[in-house]
């Protein structure tokens, strides 16, 4: 088990290295100059003599050949230094420490919220197959998968923020500051993040349960005279969760993808919003760090998923 984890982590390092390569060079292929954008946006460009601007290029190492820039970046990464943001003019590690918890707070809440209802709804739909519940669940889950997040977000804002005035429309409050207010702010973004998740999980769960329910060992369980609850909880649930875990592993990636849209609409100061701003400003350093952190999180979550298979399915062994 341990050797498996170590091996996976080593592979993860290789993948991360590839990610650094791709991210670093692809964003540099884009036309445009981050320093120029920064200076122009702040209208500093006229107050600065050319030498001063050149000094800035040197400060960021942007005057060096691209391979040297890459080597410097990787070298600094290994020392735990993510670099200096061009637009924020602050250490990116510090920025990320501001942003990551916010995205994780919203994203993980959305993730967890999508988990239980998704599994439950899918289970119920499968157990009451072809009943009206199943039909409703199927319609809703198809809708949930098909609905664009931004559209859903505006519908929610319109209904709950503007019409009913139950929830604040936008913004973010740390839960440590004011838990109740923070939760109110969280509700709509979390729905936006979790609804496609609920829908996808429910669909997957439904078909998974249907498949498991027709397995011989479930018939065995019925033949023992077990009540429906016991059959479902002991014999069907755990087995049908195995494909769900794969899906969940993928959804971790969606959290970060979805955060880009959701964080901008609801004005949440997370990684997604930082990323959008940084892309517009071509802030290489922030984009690189952002991609890197996402890669690390996704690799770790995939590892976690693979390890949890072993817990759900004793047939899987890691050696």
């Amino acid at each position: 088990m341990l050797s498996y984890i170590v091996r996976r982590l080593l592979w993860g390092l290789v993948i991360i290295w590839l990610v650094t390569l791709i991210v670093f060079f692809v964003i540099r292929l884009l036309p445009g100059d981050p320093l120029l954008i920064y200076l122009a946006q702040n209208q500093d460009i006229n107050s600065m003599p050319r030498e001063q601007i050149d000094a800035l290029y040197r400060e960021y190492g942007l005057d060096k050949p691209i391979l040297v820039q890459y080597a410097n970046w990787v070298f600094n990464l290994l020392r735990g230094d993510l670099g200096l943001s061009i637009t924020y003019r602050q250490n990116v590690g510090k920025l990320m420490l501001e942003r990551l918890p916010v995205t994780l707070h919203v994203g993980m809440t959305g993730f967890i919220v999508s988990l239980v209802p998704g599994v439950l709804v899918g289970l119920i739909a499968a157990m009451r197959r072809a009943s009206w519940i199943d039909n409703v669940v199927t319609i809703i889950s198809y809708t949930g998968i098909a609905i664009p997040v931004f559209w859903l977000a505006y519908i929610l804002i319109y209904v709950f923020g503007l019409r009913l005035k139950w929830l604040p429309i936008a913004g973010y409050v740390s839960p440590f500051e004011d838990f109740w207010l923070s939760t109110k702010h969280l509700i709509m973004p979390v729905i936006c993040i979790s609804l496609p998740g609920i829908a996808a999980t429910a669909r997957q769960m439904r078909s998974s349960v249907l498949e498991i329910a027709s397995q011989d060992y479930v018939r065995t369980a019925w033949s023992k005279g077990l009540a429906e609850k016991a059959v479902v909880c002991r014999h069907i649930l755990k087995n049908s969760l195995i494909p769900i875990i794969t899906l969940l592993g993928m959804r971790i990636g969606f959290i970060f993808g979805g955060s880009v849209i959701v964080e901008n609409i609801f004005a949440i100061p997370g990684m997604g919003r930082l990323l959008v701003g940084s892309i517009f400003a071509q802030d290489y350093v922030v984009i690189q760090a952002n991609a890197l952190i996402m890669a690390v999180i996704i690799i770790l979550s995939n590892l976690l998923v693979d390890i949890s298979y072993g817990w759900f399915d004793p047939r899987i062994r890691y050696d």
Binding site: G161, A170, A267, R273
Partner: peptide
Amino acid sequence: YYYIPEQSTASMMMEAGE
């Protein structure tokens, strides 16, 4: 001060009296 990047979000905040 609220920093709201999306026009539609800001517009609805105004309408909602936020």
